[in-house]
């Protein structure tokens, strides 16, 4: 129990498989193919600023939509009885347990020009609309895939709010709307913050959703990285540089988020 050595195997593992690989990303980002120091690749990332902006923009839209959908949903869930709550939560979370490639594939088949949505619209004389391979489809895919990541943290913070605090607000003159605004919302803020990061981070770095639903024309940061490592563009140094920039962006965003939330991160999962 008092023996710290018991952590030793993990510490070795951590250094070799977490720390060293991250250092290697940094190393490759700042060296050329011969291993000489260079800033070229990091500077090259600037060429792709359009893709960075698009990624941040689409991920931000998806995050906002997720928040708008999830917040009322989480609030509604907390209103049910204990048993109904756990059943409803299971039903809401269940699609998340399907592999996300399959979930994305489902939308791919539905959004196509002769997919089921356009067929149904055709019956009432509309369309066909081009839905697949658009930015809208990418955002839709992000919302669909990551919605549960927003619902869960908000719900789990909200459900812990002391009932008597809500009663106190009512006692002190708040009608139901004012209670939500002045008490429930501020108290659920840590959940909102962790929901935002849990949606934004995978959304900004995805390459599956953009590839399957966005076609070739809507590249995101994730696609760019993937292309440098496994695609035709093979360029490990550039890939590492892009990864590094992505990490920095995310760390910055997380730091900003943490400003709102001085909790000790207990609501991460």
């Amino acid at each position: 129990m008092k023996n710290k050595l018991i952590a030793a195997p993990y510490l070795v593992w951590m250094v070799v498989f977490i720390l060293v690989p991250l250092i290697m990303v940094g190393y490759f980002a700042f060296t050329d193919k011969e291993g000489n120091f260079t800033l070229d690749y990091v500077a090259d990332v600037a060429q792709y600023s359009q893709i960075f902006v698009r990624s941040i923009w689409l991920a931000a839209i998806a995050t906002v939509i997720c928040l708008v959908i999830s917040y009322p949903l989480a609030y509604i869930l907390t209103g049910f009885s204990k048993n109904t709550q756990s059943t409803m939560l299971m039903i809401v979370m269940l699609p998340m347990w399907m592999n996300f490639l399959l979930r994305t594939y489902a939308w791919m088949t539905m959004l196509g020009n002769n997919g089921i949505i356009n067929t149904i619209l055709g019956f009432i004389g509309l369309g066909p609309f081009k839905m697949l391979n658009t930015e809208g489809a990418v955002v839709l895919g992000m919302v669909y895939n990551y919605l549960p990541y927003m619902i869960l943290p908000i719900y789990s913070v909200m459900v812990k709010i002391d009932k008597s605090v809500i009663e106190a607000a009512s006692d002190l003159g708040c009608n139901p709307w004012k209670t939500i605004l002045r008490v429930v919302f501020p108290l659920s803020l840590p959940g909102v913050m962790s929901g935002i990061t849990m949606v934004f981070v995978p959304a900004i770095s995805t390459f599956i959703i953009s590839r399957m639903l966005g076609g070739g024309g809507n590249l995101l940061i994730g696609d760019l990285i993937e292309m440098q490592f496994l695609g035709n563009a093979y360029n490990v140094n550039l890939g590492a540089a892009i990864s590094l920039v992505l990490m920095v962006i995310i760390l910055l965003i997380m730091t900003i988020m943490n400003q709102f939330d001085n909790d000790d991160g207990a609501v991460l999962l």
Binding site: L11, G222, M247, L268
Partner: peptide, 27 residues
């Protein structure tokens, strides 16, 4: 220090974790 490093694979985008491990394995 240890907890911060441990948190990294959770906070980091999966693609970065994947890429970093790939670099290590390639090496």
């Amino acid at each position: 220090i240890v907890m911060n490093i441990t948190n990294f694979p959770i906070i980091n985008p999966e693609i970065v974790t994947g890429v970093s491990l790939m670099l290590l394995f390639v090496f």
